[in-house]
Amino acid sequence: MPGVTRLSVRNLRKSFGTHEVLKGISLDAQDGDVISLLGASGSGKSTFLRCINLLETPSDGEVWVDSEQIRMIHSKTGSKPASRRQVDHIRSELGMVFQGFNLWSHMTILQNVIEGPLHVLKRPKADCIADAEELLAKVGIADKRHAYPAHLSGGQQQRAAIARALAMKPKVMLFDEPTSALDPELVGEVLRVMRALAEEGMTMLVVTHEMSFARNVSNRVVFMREGVIDSSGSPDDMFGVGASPAFRQFIGHFGNQQ
């Protein structure tokens, strides 16, 4: 359903102590948008992503997922969600992929993938397994379904983690530097899976340092600097003549990387 706003963030702020990391970020993602969040380390892009599903508690601002607002209580002593239950529900609608994979090490790959649908969504086990097998085939590790995470390469673990997130049939997928912990030769297999997802129309928010992904796969590039959005636009604009001086300097560090 193009045109439907899947995710809307209004004036999000986050402080750690007296240090303000996010100084009012607003961002909308329509259905099928693939948005790359770029920025130097410390620019707040990961914190921003983690505020969306409340792994970090925003100090101020609004987060809407599919026109449902996460209710927050802001007081002098800090902020907290009004309802843990609502937070759990919203989280189940947002898929998250971490830099460090974070597969549950005591479960096999298949068990990792069915865990959420089976116990959080309480779907029938047979359905969960059928879906999981399909997803594992899609990300290319069907043969590893009975292996434990520790027995897989980093690239395979990350693909399993993507399958685990997809098994929840999320409305938006959040990627937090999904390839930054991988050996260079393993980056490609993960990016291929992400590209396929984008082509299927999945709504994605991707914190990344992969310029080729930002340029060739995403339809919007957002450049963050010192806790604010410095500039944003289509990849053609951002990587073309329309780039802000700061963004031009930032991508300059990546040389001719495509």
Binding site: L55, R84, L94, N102, L103, E115, G116, H119, A165, M168
Partner: peptide, 22 residues
């Protein structure tokens, strides 16, 4: 590993499920 607990949070597990399953 802290990340495994975060993954449980991120998938929407409530406190009881996190304790029991992870």
């Amino acid at each position: 590993p802290r990340g495994e607990i975060e993954a449980a949070l991120a998938i929407g597990m409530n406190r009881g499920l996190r304790f029991r399953r992870i």
